[in-house]
């Protein structure tokens, strides 16, 4: 089926079977490989994107479900040759990136958290990350990055 949605601020039309997962639509049909196919069953969160500003696992979401809605992927966080977003910057400053395969999903979850929360504590950040598995870092430096980003951009948009 063909459907239209907003992807990283621009309108796109696709013509793929409606049940094709959004992750596959992004990676195979729209050339955006930032979101990662970590498990394909909605558990690891490496494929997390924002659907109308809410984190969702794109591997389980039928593509047609985003019709008429707004999707943001990790590629939207910074201009292609522009400076990094506060979350991206903080992830590197805090040493929160190792292999990096979870990072596109982590960055989207944290972006949503920072956009929506006024009071970020270590506990609330950890709560928000339970859907994002990182096998490398033990999470501490990713949590540090979130708190750091909350400081740099205020976290109060």
């Amino acid at each position: 089926m063909s459907y239209a949605f907003t992807l990283n601020g621009r309108g796109v039309d696709v013509d793929v079977p409606g049940l094709t997962p959004l992750l596959e639509v992004l990676r195979e049909h729209l050339g955006l490989t930032g979101a990662k196919p970590g498990c394909g069953e909605g558990r690891c969160g490496a494929c997390t994107v924002l659907l109308d500003d809410q984190p969702v696992v794109s591997c389980l979401l039928p593509g047609s479900a985003v019709e008429g809605r707004s999707v943001r992927t990790v590629e939207s966080l910074a201009g292609a040759d522009g400076p990094l977003s506060p979350v991206q910057d903080a992830l590197l400053d805090a040493g929160g990136v190792q292999c990096g395969a979870c990072i596109p999903g982590m960055a989207m979850t944290l972006t949503a958290v920072l956009e929506q929360s006024r009071d970020l504590s270590e506990e609330t950040v950890r709560q928000s990350l339970t859907g994002n598995i990182c096998r490398c870092t033990g999470y501490q430096k990713i949590v540090d990055a979130a708190l750091r980003a909350a400081g740099t951009d205020g976290g109060h948009r």
């Binding site: 955006l32 490989t33 930032g34 979101a35 990662k36 196919p37 992927t73 990790v74 590629e75 966080l77 910074a78 990094l84 991206q88 992830l91 590197l92 400053d93 040493g95 990136v97 990096g100 395969a101 990072i103 596109p104 960055a107």
Partner: peptide
């Protein structure tokens, strides 16, 4: 010193090309 990793920019932008990509 705790210098930033040299491959970090591509990893946080989602442009790093992994084996799976």
């Amino acid at each position: 010193t705790s210098v930033r990793r040299a491959d970090g920019d591509a990893k946080v932008r989602g442009t790093a090309v992994y084996g799976m990509d």
